[in-house]
Structures are given as C-alpha cells and as structure tokens.
C-alpha cells in the first residue's frame, strides 16, 4: 500500500479509537505503531509523547506529525496529522447537526443542564491532577495563584499569561533568582 495512504488510514484509526486524549492514547499508539506497524520503537514513542506534552497543541496531533515526518518528511507529517483529525471532523459535524436540530426541545435542554454540572466536576478533577504535577514549590504556587486570579478577574488574553510564565520559569531556573 502507498505509504502516505497507510499513514493517513492508520492515524485515522488511532483518532477513532482515542477517547478523551492525553494519556488514554498511549496504549492505542503502542499497539498500532509499535506492535502492528513497527513504525516506531517503544522508547521512540515515549520520546514523542514527552515532547508532545511539552510543546503547544494536542498530544495526539503532535505524535502523528512526528511519526509521519519520520517516514515521509514534511508531507508525511501533514498527511498523518490530517488522518488523526479526520474522524473528529466527520463525527462531530454529524453530531452537531443532530444536536442543533433537537436543541429547542425542553427535555434536551434539561439533559444539557445536567451534563453541564458534570462538566464542572470533570474540569475540577482534571485540575487536581494537573496541580499535583505543576505546583512543586513556592514559586510555582505563586505563579499558579496569580494566573488563576488574574485570568478570572481581568479580561486579558491567556496568551499574555503563557508568555510571562515561560519567561518567569527561565529567569528563576537559569539566572539564580532565589527560591
């Protein structure tokens, strides 16, 4: 089979089987890329994943770009990425059409009333997990509090906080600002 087509289809399959993203994806990538296709060694995959987590963007997308470019250069990277987002495009578009057609019904609105409460708790749980990894000392605690309060009460773009906190991280770690 044509390698580009193979990249597209394999990552489309990963996209369909991924539910929730992030860490949930690692076992699926392992099975498809390491065991089935032999496209990457186990350690390579862990590397891609680690870099995917500490670069901007969605981890699944970053991994797809890496593997694609390894085999077919820039075009491969792009094709693999399009593969991983393709199922989302189809499924969400169909679902959004259905939801908007029924959203005026009373019971559908009630259902979403309950769902939104659940979303609050899901975000809360995700934050607790992230917090444990991110807030490791006094400086990171201060950054966390300032950003949380600043983003809630001031209407400035999140971009500002992201750029500032990266600068603070570099300053603290490299230029000997005391802890």
């Amino acid at each position: 089979m044509n390698m580009l087509l193979d990249l597209f289809l394999t990552f489309a399959k990963v996209g369909v089987m991924t539910f929730g993203g992030g860490y949930a994806m690692l076992p699926i990538l392992q099975r498809e890329l390491v065991e089935n296709k032999h496209w990457a060694a186990e350690e390579e995959l862990v590397d891609y994943f680690a870099i995917g987590q500490c670069t901007p963007g969605v981890i699944a997308v970053n991994t797809a770009t890496f593997v694609g470019q390894k085999f077919k250069g820039i075009v491969g990277g792009i094709v693999a990425t399009l593969g991983v987002v393709f199922p989302s495009l189809v499924i969400i578009s169909l679902l959004a059409g259905v939801i908007s057609a029924f959203s005026h019904l009373q019971w559908v609105q009630h259902a979403f009333g309950g769902i939104r409460i659940c979303v609050c708790i899901l975000i809360c749980n995700a934050v607790v997990k992230l917090y444990k990894k991110a807030v490791v000392d006094k400086i990171t605690l201060v950054v966390f509090l300032l950003v949380a309060l600043g983003a809630y009460f001031l209407s400035v773009s999140p971009v500002l906080f992201v750029v500032l906190s990266a600068v603070i991280g570099i300053a603290v770690k490299n230029w000997g600002v005391r802890k």
Binding site: L146, V147, Y152, V162
Partner: peptide, 22 residues
C-alpha cells in the same frame, strides 16, 4: 525551565475557565 513556569500557569488558566463554567 520554561515548562517549570508554564505548567502552573496552564493549570491556573484552566481553574479560571472552570470557575466561569461553575
């Protein structure tokens, strides 16, 4: 070291957004 600062900031941003939903 950039990520040392980025991780708590990213968490803080999600907290602020989560508060708005809540």
């Amino acid at each position: 070291s950039a990520f040392y600062g980025l991780r708590p900031a990213s968490t803080g941003l999600i907290v602020a957004a989560g508060l708005s939903v809540a």
